[in-house]
């Protein structure tokens, strides 16, 4: 039953992709597109092969930056959320500043980060971390404070200490919320890393993520390579999401039969 539906999902996704490629090819042929404006799928595929070294290196660099950024945002985000969960006053005092992180255009602070941390890996990781922090903080905070009233009463009646209520009730309850936040943040971390790389550029730093090589190819008008890199970034995003899904299944197997609505 499960396997059948998995196969079905897989084939329908593949079919949709085939239709997309066919349409793309048709547009290129019918409108006689110049390869710099829109290269054909075959050209992109060839360019993917030709530039494989740069793409693999970029994939690894951007992957490492997004993963580290995500990890940092989880560590920092969970600590912030735990602090928030301990007092309503702290929440109302500092939550607005967390929202600030969400609303400030990352593009606006990127130059500042470069000034502080240089044209390199550190800045890219930081951009990825900042952009993926908010969903972690908001979801985990919600998880920590939205505990069932009866359960809180049960702990109160058992004279539970604040620490016990945190470690035995609030934190386990927030795990599923953390996973929810991770789902959103995993994709954001990749976006953050690539945006960070655009700013870092393929200068003299020697750092070569997908974003940096894309900036380089744009200057050389290698549209086919850029599109190839877009595909590779998409795979990176999907891989991160897959990793989160795997993690959520490992974490949540105890109290949920499924890990969510999109666990393909």
């Amino acid at each position: 039953m499960r396997d059948a539906s998995f196969a079905q999902k897989f084939w329908s996704a593949l079919l949709a992709f085939a239709v997309f490629v066919a349409l793309w090819q048709a547009v290129v042929v019918i409108f006689k597109m110049h390869p710099i404006t829109l290269p054909s799928p075959a050209r992109v595929l060839r360019s993917m092969w030709d530039e494989r070294d740069a793409l693999i290196e970029g994939f690894l660099a951007t992957g490492a930056a997004s993963l580290l950024g995500l990890l940092a945002s989880v560590l920092v985000g969970v600590v912030i959320a735990i602090i928030f969960s301990q007092s309503k006053w702290l929440r109302s005092a500092f939550y607005p500043y967390v929202i600030f992180l969400q609303t400030v255009p990352i593009v606006a602070i990127a130059p500042l980060l470069i000034t502080w941390f240089g044209y390199g890996f550190k800045t890219v990781v930081l951009v990825a971390a900042i952009i993926s922090l908010f969903p972690i903080v908001s979801n985990v905070t919600a998880g920590l404070i939205s505990v069932d009233e009866n359960l809180k009463d049960l702990f109160r009646l058992s004279n539970a200490t604040r620490w016990q209520t945190l470690t035995k009730l609030r934190i386990p309850h927030a795990v599923s919320h953390l996973v929810l936040g991770l789902r959103i943040s995993a994709g954001l971390a990749v976006i953050g890393a690539i945006v960070g790389e655009f700013f870092v550029g393929n200068g003299s730093s020697g750092y070569a993520g997908l974003g940096t090589v894309m900036t380089g190819w744009q200057n050389l008008a290698k549209t086919d390579a850029i599109i190839a890199a877009i595909f590779v970034s998409t795979w990176l995003g999907l891989l991160m999401l897959g990793g989160v899904n795997l993690l959520s299944r490992m974490l949540l197997w105890r109290w949920t039969a499924s890990s969510g609505f999109e666990n393909e």
Partner: peptide
């Protein structure tokens, strides 16, 4: 106190739920 809902912790087994009050306080 026994609530209308069983009010169990979903991440704990039956026996872990039962021993919870002993661990608290």
């Amino acid at each position: 106190y026994v609530f209308q809902d069983p009010t169990l912790l979903p991440w704990r087994t039956v026996e872990e739920n039962v021993r919870l009050p002993l661990e608290l306080g």
